[in-house]
Design a protein around this nucleic acid. Structure first.
Lengths: 163, 163
DNA sequence: GGCCGTCGGTTCGAATTTGAACTACATGTC
DNA sequence: GACATGTAGTTCAAATTCGAACCGACGGCC
């Protein structure tokens, strides 16, 4: 292994900015959702995915992937939502092992009530803080960062070899 | 409250990219640190801050602010580090209430061994994935996002009122 | 000098997250 | 068809996180 390439000032600023922004934004939104809708962020995301799916139902595994969370974590959160009547489970018709999480009418209503406040908070804390160029660059750059870390190894081109 | 301004496709891409990138990067680095050095990310950050401070000691509250974590969370993590002999506590000479976390020689050595691998992982997952322009824009944009959410209300100019 | 509101840290209990079993089923191969 | 291997989801214990309650100490003020 060659000498360590430490981060220069510029890179360090980006890294620290990333850390601070992600911490604060996620904390802020978590708080907003809890206060205004009594939902955690994972729970909100579950409702969103279900609402967007045909018949409002999605396989557990598919949900877990979309949430970037572990299988057991998802089981827990769906359990919480089920307790509150926002979601139901039914077994998958084409695979006996499978389970579908299903959005209930109450769940759909809860989401409809929570969404405007949450979107407003996302805008206030992130989206509307960026100008047009920043938004574009950020989407492109972070999209690449995220996709390269996907487990399926969608690493794509590693980029040109160092000159 | 006016009509909700939903996110358009462009904004949604940025938001989703942000969510995915933050999830995956933090998960990836957490894993790398645990595997290679037996440290959690908060623990690593504590060691870094201590190593950078004169005499390797920092007040608890100051540490908590730097880590964007709660006071109790910090107490816990410093406790863990203390158990492993990487950190000691001593009471602050100028304020009886205060506590200083102090880096031990073992702690300093542990950090020195962990740092190269961690920096490499930060590069591989984020920094080296960005080109020069992206790095600059990201530092600027996320820096602004983070600072606006600081509790001290360093909100700065909110920007021109909507036209 | 004594009081009052605030600060610095810890402790506590509750909620959440994770990875490692574990069960039950699906799938491909011969 | 039977078997080996992999997949879907849950359960479990352990670790971590948060906020609220708490205690002792500080500081300003009368």
């Amino acid at each position: 292994m060659a000498e360590t390439r430490w981060l220069d000032e510029h890179e360090m600023a980006a890294w620290q900015g990333f850390l601070e922004a992600t911490s604060r934004v996620s904390r802020h939104l978590e708080q907003q959702l809890k206060d205004d809708a009594g939902l955690s962020h994972p729970q909100y995301e579950i409702l969103v995915r279900l609402a967007a799916a045909p018949d409002g139902e999605v396989r557990m595994t598919e949900l877990a992937e979309g949430l970037f969370t572990s299988k057991s974590g998802l089981t827990y959160q769906v359990g919480q939502l089920e307790k509150r009547g926002l979601v139901t489970r039914r077994s998958c018709p084409t695979d006996v092992r499978g389970v579908l999480a299903v959005l209930t009418p109450t769940g759909r209503r809860t989401l409809r009530e929570a969404a405007p406040g949450h979107v407003a908070a996302v805008r206030a804390s992130l989206i509307d803080v960026l100008d047009e160029e920043e938004l574009t660059v950020l989407a492109r750059a972070l999209g690449r960062v995220g996709s390269r870390l996907r487990p399926d190894g969608a690493a794509g081109p590693v980029g040109p070899p160092a000159p």
